[in-house]
Structure formats: C-alpha cells, structure tokens
C-alpha cells in the first residue's frame, strides 16, 4: 500500500531563542496509508496537537519534512491552502470557531473558500450535514442556538464539506456525554466505511481508540513510543502503563484474569474477543 502521508524526522520547537523554548515534537517519523483509520494517543502535553497541525501545514516544521502523496507540502509555500483542503483538520473544541448567521452558511465557509459554487456547494453542505446527523430543518438556524454537541457536529460538517482526502480529528468527543460520544463516533465510523477516506483520530480514551482504529501510534514526551495494530500495542500493556497511559477496560480484565492463572490472551481489547477467549477456556474444561 502507498503511504498518503509520510512524516520524516519531524521536529517542532516552540519559542526558539526565548526563555520559554520547548520541543513539542522531536524527530518523529511514521507513515499514514490511504484509507486507514489511524489512532494517536499520548499523555497530555505529549505533542499530539502540535503534530497534527503540521500535517495540514498550519505549523511549519522547525526540522524534517512532511510528504503528501510523495510531495513535500512546503515545496511551494504559496499553495499551502490546497494542502489544507486535502487534509482536513478538526480542532479540539471546534464549536468555538462557528461565526456565520446560519448553520448552512457556516458549513459552506470551507467549500466556498475552495471555490465551489451553486449545486456542487449545496450538495457538499447537505451531504456533510447528513453525515454528522444534522437535520435539514436545523440548517437555517443560527449555530449559536444549538446545543454544545450539535455545534460540534456543525463544525465537523464544516470540514467534511471540503471533501478532504485525509480527515484529522483532535479529540472529537471531549466533553460530550457517553451517548453523544458513541453517537458521534458512529457517524465518523460510517463516514470512514462509506467514503473509504483516511482518518486520523487523536484521543485520550483508550476504549474509543481500541473500538475504532486499524492502527495506533503512541506518543510519549514528544516522541513516538510505539506503533502498530491494536493487538500489538495492547500486548505491551506494561509499557503503556509506565508511560502514564491507560489500556482498554477489556484488556485490564483480561490481564487480571491472566494474573489469576487463567489461560487468556491479555492483549484482547474488544468485548467479543474476550468472550471468545473465555468460552474457549470453558470448552477446554478449565475451572472458571
């Protein structure tokens, strides 16, 4: 598979030459493949937000390179706007960026900047609104009349409407209630499945990552600690825990059972897999 994004020795230092100098990203290298659902986790301050702002050219690397489809995104600084249309970034708490009179106009801001007009614009706006579960009658409302969760959906639709090849979400479910969280994640999963677009999800919640992504990138103090399929990453649970991170609840249960001497793979991370493991044990006749 061809990587859609290649990050090569990326380094970012804030406040160079001031007393507040600080490296937020240090020598990170990894690839993102077309169509994959990549999860990024890391402790608070590990550089997640800084990293993803490089991927669409909002921050300029102080060292290293980012290749989009094999081309350095900073090769032509004048064309950086095109990169931003191709790599859509939804910020943490994106509801604070809304500004238009109506939901419809706000969603249309991105595609209008892209130069879309008329029917194409209308199609983009309505389709992305539908994708995130905004009803048609809400499109003519002021975005400020909506609830927090609905505002966030509008902001997400505003980025989806640009039809980016890669969608980056920075903690999209932070501050939502459990039902709203699951609901939004379901929308995102559907989008991934139906459109087959690349998604990068930044999250604090191990469970959310475990349930959704194909591959995980773990960051620790500005560096990549590990990367791989969820099963590979959760197999190194001890390391994750020493890095100050959590493991999914299911993995914790499996680890506890294993510690009690049961023959269970401690790296399982979905309820179904754990169920299979336990059922297999019972068939084997071991005492439960």
């Amino acid at each position: 598979m061809e990587p859609i994004l290649q990050i090569k020795n990326l380094t970012h230092t804030y406040g160079i030459g001031t007393p507040f100098q600080r490296s937020a990203v240090e020598d990170m290298s990894f690839e993102v493949y077309g169509g994959e659902f990549l999860g990024i986790i890391g402790h608070t301050g590990s550089g997640k937000s800084t990293l993803i702002q490089h991927l669409n050219g909002l921050l300029k690397p102080t060292g290293g390179q980012i290749l989009l489809n094999g081309k350095d995104i900073w090769a032509e600084p004048k064309k950086i706007r095109d990169v931003r249309f191709r790599v859509g970034l939804v910020f943490q708490y994106p509801e604070y960026q809304l500004f238009e009179e109506t939901v419809y106009k706000d969603i249309a801001f991105g595609p209008t900047n892209q130069g879309k007009t008329g029917e194409e614009l209308d199609r983009c706006v309505r389709e992305s609104a539908r994708l995130v579960g905004i009803r048609d009658d809400q499109l003519d409302k002021s975005p400020f009349e909506l609830s927090g969760g609905q505002k966030r959906r509008v902001a997400l639709a505003g980025v989806l409407a640009m039809e980016p090849e890669v969608l980056i979400l920075d903690e999209p479910t932070a501050g939502l209630d459990p039902a709203g969280r699951e609901n939004l994640m379901a929308n995102i999963r559907d989008y991934h499945r139906n459109k087959n677009k690349t998604i990068i999800l930044v999250s604090h919640s191990m469970d959310e990552i475990a349930q959704n992504v194909d591959r995980i990138l773990v960051l620790k103090s500005a560096r990549v600690l590990m990367s791989g399929a969820p099963a590979e990453v959760f197999a190194r649970a001890e390391e994750l825990i020493t890095a100050g991170l959590d493991v999914p609840q299911v993995t914790r249960i499996a680890m506890a059972l294993k510690a009690r001497g049961m023959d269970i793979d401690p790296a399982v991370y979905t309820v179904e897999a754990l169920e299979q493991e336990i059922l297999a044990l019972r068939k084997g006749g071991a005492p439960c």
């Binding site: 931003r84 859509g88 970034l89 910020f91």
Partner: peptide, 13 residues
C-alpha cells in the same frame, strides 16, 4: 491564534 488556525484549516485567507 487558535481561532485563526481553525479558520485557516477551512481555507480562510
């Protein structure tokens, strides 16, 4: 800064 970045991400110029 944050708002500017967010709008730039939507192609604001």
């Amino acid at each position: 800064d944050k708002i500017m970045s967010a709008q730039k991400a939507r192609g604001a110029d």
